[in-house]
Simulated scan of single mutants.
Amino acid sequence: MATAFHVYVINNLGDDKNLTTHCRSTETDLGTRVLEFGAAFDWEFEITIGHVAEYWCDMSWASSHGDFQVFYEPRDALRRGDQKCYWRIDRDGLYLYIKSDDDYELQFRWP
């Protein structure tokens, strides 16, 4: 049996600030995208029993750059809710929507 997940990366950096992101897992390279302010990049995948899903996104804007683990099934499957992961990318870091709190919480700061 498989469970489907949907991940969203949303540029919330502000006007005239593009976000460049390259997301991938060990099996899938989702390519490089340039997101204008307010734009989103999203993808779906399925997790089967006995397989651990993990996705990383290399992100940059202006002089900020980092490689972030945006999905790791043992850590994230339950805290996301409805199998949807919303990442809001802000100037101070990456925020994840936590369904139980009905709010975004800072997860990663820009290095």
Rank of each mutant, 00 (worst) to 15 (best):
E54K: 13
R24D: 02
D42K: 12
W61A: 13
F68S: 04
D29Y: 00
F41G: 02
W61S: 10
L96A: 02
E27N: 00
W110Y: 01
L96V: 00
W61K: 08
C57K: 01
F5Q: 09
W56T: 14
T21C: 07
G38V: 08
I49V: 15
G93W: 06
S60Q: 06
N11E: 10
E105N: 03
A77E: 07
P74H: 08
V70K: 01
V7G: 13
Y97A: 01
E46G: 12
Y104D: 03
S63L: 14
L94Q: 06
R91W: 15
M59Y: 11
L106T: 00
I98H: 00
W87Y: 11
W87Q: 06
L78T: 11
R24F: 01
D67P: 06
S25C: 04
N11I: 12
H65L: 09
A39S: 11
D92N: 09
E27V: 04
E46F: 10
A2D: 14
L78W: 08
A2R: 10
E44P: 07
Y97W: 13
C57T: 09
E44S: 12
L94K: 00
E36R: 08
N11S: 15
I47A: 14
Y95W: 05
A53S: 13
G66I: 04
T20H: 04
L94M: 08
H6V: 12
V34D: 04
M1H: 14
M59F: 09
S100Y: 00
L94N: 02
Q69D: 03
C85N: 08
T21A: 10
W87L: 09
A53Q: 06
C23H: 07
D103S: 03
E44F: 05
D101F: 05
H6E: 15
Y104R: 03
E105M: 05
K17Y: 14
L19R: 10
Q107S: 00
D67V: 03
R24E: 03
T20G: 09
A77P: 03
D16P: 03
S100C: 00
E27M: 01
G81H: 06
E27T: 04
D42E: 15
G38W: 13
F71M: 05
D102E: 06
C85L: 12
F37G: 03
H65A: 14
N12E: 12
C85W: 03
G50S: 11
Y72A: 01
I47T: 15
L19C: 14
F108H: 00
F41Y: 11
S63P: 08
D67F: 02
N11D: 12
N12W: 11
D92E: 10
D102V: 07
L19F: 12
G93M: 02
C85G: 12
A40Q: 10
R80Y: 07
Y86L: 06
Y104H: 07
F71I: 08
R80D: 08
W43K: 01
G31E: 06
L78V: 11
E44H: 06
D29W: 01
D58M: 06
R91T: 10
Q83F: 15
G31I: 05
I10P: 13
N18L: 12
S60P: 02
V34K: 00
Y8I: 15
D42H: 15
D92K: 09
F37I: 07
D101C: 02
Y104M: 02
K84W: 11
S63W: 11
L106A: 00
V70S: 00
K17V: 12
M1K: 13
Y86A: 04
W43E: 05
